[in-house]
Nucleic acid binder design. Structure first.
Lengths: 352, 352
DNA sequence: ATTAGCACTCGACAGGATAGAGTGCTAATA
DNA sequence: TATTAGCACTCTATCCTGTCGAGTGCTAAT
């Protein structure tokens, strides 16, 4: 009847390591952990009764809970959190021993950045055996390398922007008056000359303004700028790649009525994932959201391990793994971290 | 004990209409149809006993079956087939009364054909409330409008192909020797002049060969051709768009153990869908595959309603709806047909 | 050809009994 | 004081059972 009132105190070493073992046991087996079978399985030098006492304490401290009276214990979100945090110390984020082929060959030849991201997302989901999600880089931070204008129809022209990353952005632009092919050629030269080396956000913020105030001989400068401004203005929304939902459907506990609902709302309302990743993007490094830590309340029983990635030293996007609360964090955290680093390296190298 | 031996004979009018009603009833309710409740619900002028006799006959003819003795009847694949075929007569494929906005506005401004297809696939899944699949057009049939070569790095150049449909295909090409920007400009002009108006397959088959045998002054013709040939050679695989898998997960019968397996293998092995759509593409018009008619034996209890679409009068792609065998064919068939027509019209208009 | 009547079948559901794993508590022990 | 053995209790999962309802096939009457 008298449950511990103290809900916050540091764990003793023994308690800590037992808690870790319990969480691990639950993660791998998925069944409530009972005192007797637990001490037996791990050949611990204590009796089940002692274990019960310890578990009782851990429950009072809200690291564990019981699905119902007289069942074994399962971790609370706080328990998972403790587990993940204590793992972090030992991760060192090394994936050296794992062999992940990032198919650099295939990637090098791609100009459609989206396809590269598809490949990476697929790889991450395959490797983690959960679902992988990725937010493409903020367009505003990509650096212009070259601008090419190509005539299409009477007053339609194609605006092609080659970025340092080797990505090509194409956009149709409507112009009111007719332009000759020669005009466009000159526009291209002029725009490339002026915009090359700048990031989109700089161009939007200051460059356009400055250029409009400059004199330029021989080019219908204003028209060129109009076209560029029009093409760049509708800033490309970062796209969301998802892969491996099927992995989640293979996990028995995810297919139960209410969980399935969670999943569906995640897939349908991809703003949920967008928001989570956008938050991840605000800080450098790994971020883990466990269970209720995901504030979107349609989502129940899920965790997200995500990390931001950079171009140079600008945080531009995020990538992560979505799985059940009972996720194999020990494997997933280093994997996500590694993936983030690879993406950063890749993008940074490309944009040099 | 003595079941009808004759398994093939034309249905009488009454039998036919009762069969249709039974299939319809099962499609909408999902529960085996029993004699008593059926005659009651439809206020038929026969007794349950008579209905039982009719059902007995229909079962002998393999249009119906029982999930177990003393349960109501459910349609066999043959039963669904009969239902669908008899509906076909009355469809007239008119969707006039339905309001489907194909967001032509949004589509007009897109140059990435893939995005257009995403929109259409999403629309089709939303409207049908099942999963929608679409195979993008065969690249080989797109007609070249303009070729632009843009320098990237030392010996990397960007090959941009603008097609009549307004779609842009970009490809990185590696060249061995250095080329100047002027070279590329001339190459672009030359290639545009020679290739414009031809479809990729024509270019691959004959044009290249012809050009190589022609004389041309002032351009390093061979190099230009090398680049183009390299870029065009790796023919773009048609891509597969899938949307609305979540709709299938909402259908109770699809979430049962073995069915879920079906679904997973479909999502994972998208070659299955590719194959089915490729077959659809071989003929003009609607094609329905019911249950076991889908030969891929991982897939159970699913049906596919699909149609091919054209550019001009060339069959170039396919689009369809994947759902449970117990699908609302009456709604889906005209919808898919309509979608196919819209896509055809759209692509054809664009490529003029 | 249709129908009424009847015996029978099967699935779904509810209730009850049982086994197994687990707990909390108390008293004994090292 | 921390640990343990023992015990009564609790809860789930499972299996068995009986009952209800909807459905069927068959036969004989209309």
């Amino acid at each position: 009847m008298s449950r511990e009132i103290i809900k916050e105190r540091a764990l003793e070493d023994r308690e800590a390591s037992i808690l870790q073992a319990i969480v691990y046991e639950y993660i791998t087996k998925g069944k409530p952990v009972g005192s007797r079978s637990f001490v037996h399985k791990y050949s611990l030098a204590v009796s089940p009764a002692t274990m019960r006492n310890i578990m009782y304490d851990l429950e009072g401290l809200e690291y564990l809970k019981q699905p119902h009276t007289s069942a074994g214990r399962i971790p609370t979100d706080k328990g998972y959190r403790f587990y993940v945090d204590s793992l972090l110390d030992s991760y060192e984020f090394s994936m050296k021993d794992r062999e992940i082929s990032v198919k650099e060959e295939a990637i090098k030849r791609e100009v459609q950045l989206d396809k590269i991201f598809s490949i990476i997302t697929k790889m991450l989901s395959t490797e983690s055996r959960y679902a992988a999600v990725m937010l493409t880089p903020r367009f505003d931070f990509t650096v212009v390398k070259r601008v090419v204008l190509v005539p299409m129809d009477n007053n339609e022209i194609l605006f092609i922007l080659v970025t340092r990353t080797g990505v090509v952005l194409t956009k149709k632009v409507l112009v009111s008056s007719n332009v000759t092919q020669d005009d466009l050629y000159n526009f291209s030269k002029y725009l490339t000359g002026e915009l090359c080396g700048y990031a989109i956000y700089e161009i939007k913020d200051t460059i356009f303004e400055r250029l409009r105030n400059e004199k330029e001989a021989g080019v219908n400068k204003d028209m060129a700028l109009d076209i560029a401004q029009l093409a760049v203005s509708e800033s490309e929304e970062p796209r969301l790649h998802i892969d491996g939902i099927e992995n989640l459907l293979k996990i028995p506990e995810m297919v139960e009525e209410d969980r399935l609902h969670s999943l569906l709302s995640i897939i349908e309302e991809n703003n949920i994932l967008r928001r989570i990743l956008a938050r991840t993007m605000e800080n450098e490094g790994i971020s883990t959201l466990i269970g209720e830590e995901i504030e979107e309340d349609q989502v129940k029983g899920c965790s997200m391990v995500s990390t931001s990635y950079k171009i140079g030293n600008k945080l531009v996007g995020a990538v992560g793994v979505l799985g059940p609360t009972r996720m194999d964090y020990e494997k997933v955290v280093p994997l996500v971290d590694y993936t983030g680093r690879v993406v950063t390296e890749l993008l940074t190298k490309m944009s040099k």
